[in-house]
Simulated scan of single mutants.
Amino acid sequence: MKSARKGTALIQEVRSTEVPYGTLAIWFLGQESVIIKGDGITVYIDPYVSDFLDRNGPVRSYPAPIIPEDITGADLCLITHEHDDHMDEGTLTVFHAQNKEAPIIAPACCRQELLRMGVEGTSILTADAREARELFSKLRLTVIPAAHEELEQDENGYERSVGYVLELNGVTLYHAGDTVIYPGLAERLAEIAPDVALLPINGRDYFRREKGIIGNMNYREAAELAVRIGAETVIPLHYDVFAGNSEKPGYFVDYLYEHYPEQKCHVMARGERFVYVSARAFV
């Protein structure tokens, strides 16, 4: 009997995974693409699983664990900013066609491009850092401004780049999107004290910026930020898809081990399901 294709099997795993209160399931798809599941809600963040950039720019270092056609059963999609490896046309056109009921939340500057991709206007919600949003009566979503590499707002006060805090199933998760650390970020996140922080580690430098590659915090900054904000567990992102904009996650782990050996971290394998378990799971 022929076994299921790897991507199909991963989505079947997502569908069948049920996590008890106080836990969240996380799947890593590469770059900053993740799937989050808790309390029956399945959320995709920055799904980039097509070969779209292969035809228009850098080539992926490895194939994505799934293809866009695999994605079914999604309840929500969150986009952090408009760059192609975060708001991927090759993925989102198929995502929307196969998950019509799933809203797509994105910065206001992304709306026209999403409409061009064929996403219906009623499915597009604007990421607004000025107020939290309740979804499905189970998820509280807070938008955090991101500086990629600078904070930018439009004339209506909407951020160009964002991160998201998800409060779901008794767990608080922060996905930073693409950002450097800016004044006030650590203090705000420390008040939230996320259980899980997903942070980019690829950094930035003059020569990448010269090529038009806008950067993020580096692995040292990400490690220090995780400790400063009181994240119980930190997961590094944005280090593996493009050879010209990569970082070794081992440097991140080594830095934490040398300086903050009690800080929990987890480097996710491609396509891995990681189940985060908080203390609230045992209350």
Rank of each mutant, 00 (worst) to 15 (best):
Y239K: 07
A231H: 01
D205N: 15
D205H: 09
N156E: 14
E210C: 07
E210L: 12
G230C: 05
V171L: 11
Y219A: 10
E221P: 02
H259W: 08
G163W: 01
V267A: 11
M268N: 08
N156R: 14
G163D: 00
L151H: 01
R208L: 02
Y251K: 15
R209L: 12
R188Y: 05
G177V: 06
I181W: 02
Y255N: 04
S161H: 06
V171N: 08
P200K: 03
Y255C: 03
E152T: 14
I214Q: 05
T172H: 08
P194V: 02
E155G: 03
R160N: 11
Y182L: 09
I235M: 14
R208N: 02
R228H: 13
E167Y: 07
D154E: 06
V180L: 12
P249T: 13
R220M: 15
T233E: 08
Y251L: 15
H148V: 10
Y255M: 06
A176D: 02
G230I: 06
P194A: 10
Y206K: 14
G212V: 08
L151P: 01
N216C: 14
R188F: 05
V253F: 10
A147H: 08
A193L: 04
V162P: 00
P261M: 05
V165Q: 01
P200E: 03
G157P: 07
A269H: 11
E258D: 14
P145K: 00
A146D: 03
A146V: 02
A186L: 09
I144A: 06
L168W: 02
I192N: 02
I214P: 02
A223G: 11
G157L: 07
L256Y: 11
Y164M: 00
A197V: 07
D178Q: 12
T172R: 15
Y251A: 13
G215K: 00
G157T: 08
L225A: 10
L237E: 07
R188S: 10
G157F: 05
D254L: 13
